[in-house]
């Protein structure tokens, strides 16, 4: 793949790469450092990327390795069980967004990192379980189990646990409902 094509594809993948970074790391400035490092490494190693394969998955793999390397260097301060990470996340609410984004940010930040990344890859980034497993370097069953646990915990944190509260259009209802007071 020539550099112009590679550059074009990197640009195209950037929004979803950045969304993954922000959701994974919590803080936008830390996420953007991760994206910068990922782009630099991806460029340096572009010969190891096989054209035609999933570039996004390849980039996500680099980014998450960077994330964990940084996490280990920084130690436990990054993992903030009280949701302190979420308070620092600067994400603009959607123009017409009735949903309370702060709730989702806070809830995501309270998941263990391994569950958070599994859920983000499968439910938000549209990766298959197989792709998510390859990115995280674990078995498909491990990803499924992490996604299930992440969903259960998120549902609990967002008070979605009572199935009787939701009809067949639960998703639509949740999306259009007004924020809790």
């Amino acid at each position: 793949m020539s550099s112009p094509e590679f550059k074009r594809d990197l640009l195209a993948a950037m929004p979803s790469l950045r969304a993954f970074a922000i959701s994974l790391a919590g803080k936008v400035d830390r996420a953007d450092d991760l994206v910068q490092e990922t782009l630099t490494k991806a460029w340096a190693h572009q010969n190891s990327y096989t054209p035609g394969t999933n570039l996004r998955a390849w980039l996500f793999t680099i980014l998450r390795n960077e994330f964990y390397t940084t996490l280990r260097k920084r130690g436990r301060e990054v993992e903030d069980a009280d949701g302190g990470i979420a308070l620092n996340v600067a994400v603009h609410p959607a123009q017409d967004g009735h949903m309370d984004m702060t709730d989702m940010k806070t809830a995501l930040a309270r998941l263990p990192a391994d569950q958070r990344e599994a859920l983000l890859l499968v439910s938000a980034s549209d990766m298959s379980y197989e792709e998510a497993a390859a990115i995280c370097g674990v078995a498909v069953g491990t990803i499924k189990s992490r996604v299930n646990r992440a969903r259960a915990k998120l549902a609990d944190l967002l008070h979605l646990t009572d199935a009787s509260d939701y009809g067949p259009d639960a998703g639509t209802m949740a999306a259009i409902s007004t924020p809790r007071t």
């Binding site: 609410p93 938000a124 939701y166």
Partner: peptide, 20 residues
């Protein structure tokens, strides 16, 4: 139904970031 609802909320949250 909870899984669907969560999925949609996650996508909305995510889309908001990707549109920046």
């Amino acid at each position: 139904n909870v899984e669907r609802s969560l999925g949609q909320q996650l996508k909305t949250y995510y889309q908001d970031i990707t549109e920046q």
